[in-house]
Structure formats: C-alpha cells, structure tokens
Design a protein around this nucleic acid. Structure first.
Lengths: 201, 201
DNA sequence: TACCCAATTCAATGGGTGTTGAATTCTTGC
DNA sequence: GCAAGAATTCAACACCCATTGAATTGGGTA
C-alpha cells in the first residue's frame, strides 16, 4: 500500500489546490496551535509537496495570517448587536457567540485565533490589534458611555474565557452543556458588563 | 567582550544551580510558552551548559511539570473562600485571584499554566485534571447545590478569561486598570455564578 | 588522606524545521 | 499551435532542537 509518488508538473484540470491547502491549514492551526503546526504536516494532509505551500502563501507567517482571518464579518455582528433593545444586548451577544462556536466553519478559526493569541507573542499582537480595531472600538463607540472601553474589554474577557473553558481546556461540564442553558447563564454577565453598574454594591 | 568559557567540572561552593535553572525555566515558560521555550535558551540565560538542564530534570517535559506546579495551595484558597459569608464569596474570589496574578512569584506560573493549557494538548489534559481535582470538585462540594459543577466551571471561565484578557492578550484598558476597580467589576459575576440564579430573567 | 559521588562541561548524534532554486507538466491567451 | 506563465514536485540547504556518553572538577565522608 505504498502511496504512488506523483510526478512533477502541473496536474490536469482546474486547480483548487490553494483553497484545499488553506482549509487544511486552518484545521491544523486550530487543532495544534501555531508552533506545533508544520508546513510539512499540512502538505502531507493535503497530499501536496511542502514547497507548494510556501509557494502559494510565501511562508508560514503569511499562511497563518490568511488562515486566521476573523471567521465572521465584524460589521454584521456589531449591527445585529446594537440593533435591538439595549436591555437584551447581553443575550443577543451570547447567542451570536454560541452560533459562531457551534458552526463548524467558524469554530476552527475561532479556536485557532485564541490558541495563537495565547501562545505566540507576534500573533497575540496581530490579534489584539484586529480585535481592538474591528470589534472593541466600534462596540465601545456604539455604547457611548465614558467607561465604554473598559466595558467592552470586560465583555471580551468573558467571551474568551467561555470559549477557552468550553472548547480548548474542556472544563467539565461545559463542553456538554446545552446551548440554551449556557446562553441563559452567561447573558446576564455580558448584559451587566455592557450596560449595568460596574461598581460592587 | 567574549564570555570566558568555563572549564568543565564542579564549581566551588555549595550549588544552588538546580533552583536557578528552575526559576529561569519558569520565566521562560511564562514568557514564551512551552514550545518556544528551549532548553538551550534556559541554559544560556542561567549561564550553564544545556546538558545540565537535562541532567537535573530529565528532559523538557519533566522540567515543565515541575516548573508549572500550581503557584498556590488549593486547600488554603478554598478554605478562605468558603470561610466567610456566602454573600461575599464572589468578592473574596476576585481578591484572591488578583492577589495571585499581581504577586511576581505566582504570576509567571499562572500565566505559564494558561499558556500551556491553550497550546499543548498534553499539558491541557494534565492541567484540566489538576484543576478539576484540586479546585473545581472541592469547590462544587463546598457549594453543595445540585448544579454546583456547572457553577464552578462558569466561575473558572470568567477567571481564566480575565487573566487571558488582562495579562496574555492584553486587551486595553485591562492591563492598566486598577485592582480595586477590576475586583468590583468582576465580583458580581462570580457571585452570581456561585450562588445566584443561573436562568435568564 | 582516599574514595565515591554530585556537579559541570564538551562533543557528537539524529531528527525535524522553514525556505529556495531548478526542473517538469499543464493551462491559457494569442 | 505556440509561447508564456502557472502549478507542481524534487532535492538540497542551513539552522535549531533535545538527548546522551564521556571526561573533568570539586565536596563530603570515613
């Protein structure tokens, strides 16, 4: 059962190889994190030569940058958030987060992002800026209160913590806890961070 | 300015080298994560030969296991938590977490733990079990309610999220936010996860 | 003082990594 | 139907890594 070595040269038909590599890379980054993901591993899984990966994406860093693009359109998320009644914004956010994390398409990318942010300083910086620019700043602007940046950041902390605990570390019983129950439990926290009082009572 | 190469053989005086290496390793693991930390890097920083590191700790994994021991005594934390009035348990937990993350001694170890949990599956498993056994299970037992495991896990998610956001990713303005303000903001969340209603209202 | 063992360095080994240049095969525009 | 360029592989490079065995020096003890 030796895999037939493929001859050099372009393959017949129209090529979707670039996309295939990108998808494979996303899976690997999500499962292994940046460091443990190797170009060779991606290439093997995509049944392609290593050099092709570097050829298409000009190196590992660029490949990661492309693979780890936000798995959603921040503008859409934000407009949905700010649209409805302000007293239910926490619940709406919880729902959107759970949607994203449960849809297989976005799930991997989200996890890859968080993993990378935790392990690689360079990636952390890139991600911090992206999140700030595309999510937190507009969100804070939408809230309009003077302590809005702090509110946005606190909100982010709970969102990140939830994804970490449920999907990366896997703290029982979170991975098996139903969507509805989770949304209900977390929504009031987000609501208070976004609109409630921030001082202890 | 060439560093004088040291001759082989034991150095004079009583040796604290093992401890020195361990401290250096902690710093490196905390700053770089597991993968990007190299024995060579540790050795160089500790002004010691690489082989000595492996000699003392029998390899990178074991070194990490020793460096990443919990930076506090879970029993103490738990007893302090469960001791006072139940209505202020959220605030007490927030204070203890902030104490740990601000004390230089424990800070690095906490960060290393979280980084490793996010990036290395093996470490994640080890850490998950430790946290479960030493923190969450006793905490749930102390709470005594039927949904206690879920409550403990939610609490953990906010704690982890806070440390991530404030110290690892560095989401503004959290890193510069004062201890008191932060404790006040987060305490009600922890309080509700631990003792409040978990269903949306 | 001798002896044993711990601490320390040196040197070598084997493996894995990302990247690069050249060669081959195909598609596409003229 | 020809030429240019894109897709693909092969092979090699230079680098870094953890681990191991042997050699050297010092401390502690009998």
């Amino acid at each position: 059962m030796t895999a037939t070595p493929r001859r050099a040269g372009r393959r017949p038909g129209t090529s979707q190889t670039r996309q295939l590599i990108l998808d494979t890379a996303r899976r690997h980054f999500a499962e292994l994190g940046y460091d443990r993901t190797t170009l060779r591993g991606i290439a093997t899984a995509a049944e392609v030569d290593v050099a092709l990966v570097s050829h298409f994406f000009s190196g590992k860093q660029r490949l990661f940058a492309e693979a780890a693009a936000l798995p959603y359109d921040p503008a859409v998320v934000l407009s949905r958030l700010l649209a409805g009644p302000r007293e239910e914004i926490g619940r709406r956010l919880a729902d959107q987060v759970l949607d994203l994390i449960e849809a297989p398409a976005s799930r991997g990318r989200l996890i890859a992002l968080i993993r990378a942010a935790a392990s690689e300083e360079g990636a952390a910086q890139l991600i911090r800026e992206r999140i700030n620019r595309e999510l937190l700043v507009p969100l804070a602007a939408g809230l309009g209160s003077p302590d809005a940046p702090l509110r946005a950041a606190l909100t982010g902390s709970q969102v990140v913590g939830l994804v970490m605990a449920r999907h990366i570390v896997g703290i029982d019983p979170l991975p098996g806890t139903g969507r509805e129950q989770l949304a209900a439990a977390v929504a009031p926290t987000l609501q208070r961070y976004l609109t409630g009082p921030l001082d202890d009572v």
